[in-house]
Lab assay of single mutants.
Amino acid sequence: SADYSSLTVVQLKDLLTKRNLSVGGLKNELVQRLIKDDEESKGE
C-alpha cells in the first residue's frame, strides 16, 4: 500500500477530500482511514 505516513496532514486531507472521506482526527487516524479505504476498494 502507499506510504501515507510520509505525507503531510495537508496532503492526507486532500486525498481524503477527493475520496469523500472524513478529514477529522489526528494524522494517524487519517492514515488509517486511507489504508482502510484502499483495502475496501480492492475488495470490489
Rank of each mutant, 00 (worst) to 15 (best):
Ser1Tyr: 14
Ser1Gly: 12
Ser1Arg: 13
Ala2Asn: 14
Ala2Pro: 15
Asp3Ser: 06
Asp3Pro: 07
Ser5Asp: 15
Ser5Arg: 08
Ser5Gln: 14
Ser5Glu: 15
Ser5Asn: 15
Ser6Gly: 12
Leu7His: 05
Leu7Ser: 03
Leu7Cys: 09
Thr8Trp: 00
Val9Phe: 04
Val9Asn: 06
Val10Arg: 10
Gln11Lys: 06
Gln11Pro: 00
Leu12Phe: 00
Lys13Pro: 00
Lys13Leu: 09
Lys13Gln: 12
Lys13His: 07
Lys13Cys: 10
Asp14Thr: 07
Asp14His: 08
Asp14Phe: 06
Leu15Cys: 06
Leu15His: 04
Leu15Pro: 01
Leu15Arg: 04
Leu15Gln: 06
Leu16Arg: 00
Leu16Ser: 01
Leu16Phe: 00
Leu16Asn: 01
Thr17Glu: 12
Thr17Asn: 12
Thr17Tyr: 07
Lys18Pro: 00
Lys18Ala: 10
Arg19Ser: 02
Arg19Pro: 02
Asn20Tyr: 05
Asn20Lys: 09
Leu21Ala: 03
Leu21Gly: 02
Leu21Met: 06
Ser22Phe: 06
Ser22Pro: 15
Val23Cys: 09
Gly24Gln: 15
Gly25Val: 01
Gly25Tyr: 00
Gly25Arg: 00
Gly25Asn: 02
Gly25Pro: 02
Leu26Cys: 12
Leu26Glu: 15
Leu26Gln: 12
Lys27Gly: 04
Lys27Val: 07
Lys27Ile: 09
Lys27Leu: 08
Asn28Trp: 14
Asn28Phe: 09
Asn28Ser: 14
Asn28Leu: 09
Asn28Tyr: 09
Glu29Trp: 00
Glu29Asp: 13
Glu29Ile: 06
Glu29Ala: 07
Glu29Ser: 05
Glu29Leu: 05
Leu30Cys: 04
Leu30Ile: 04
Val31Asn: 01
Val31Asp: 01
Val31Trp: 00
Val31Ile: 15
Gln32Arg: 10
Gln32Cys: 11
Arg33Leu: 04
Arg33Asn: 02
Arg33Val: 03
Leu34Gln: 01
Leu34Glu: 01
Leu34His: 00
Ile35Arg: 08
Ile35Trp: 04
Ile35Met: 10
Lys36Met: 11
Asp37Lys: 04
Asp38Ala: 05
Glu40Gln: 13
Glu40His: 12
Glu40Cys: 15
Glu40Gly: 09
Ser41Asn: 14
Ser41Met: 13
Ser41Val: 10
Ser41Arg: 15
Lys42Gln: 11
Lys42Thr: 10
Lys42Ser: 10
Lys42Arg: 13
Lys42Asp: 09
Lys42His: 12
Lys42Val: 10
Gly43Cys: 14
Gly43Trp: 11
Gly43Val: 12
Glu44Met: 13
Glu44Phe: 12
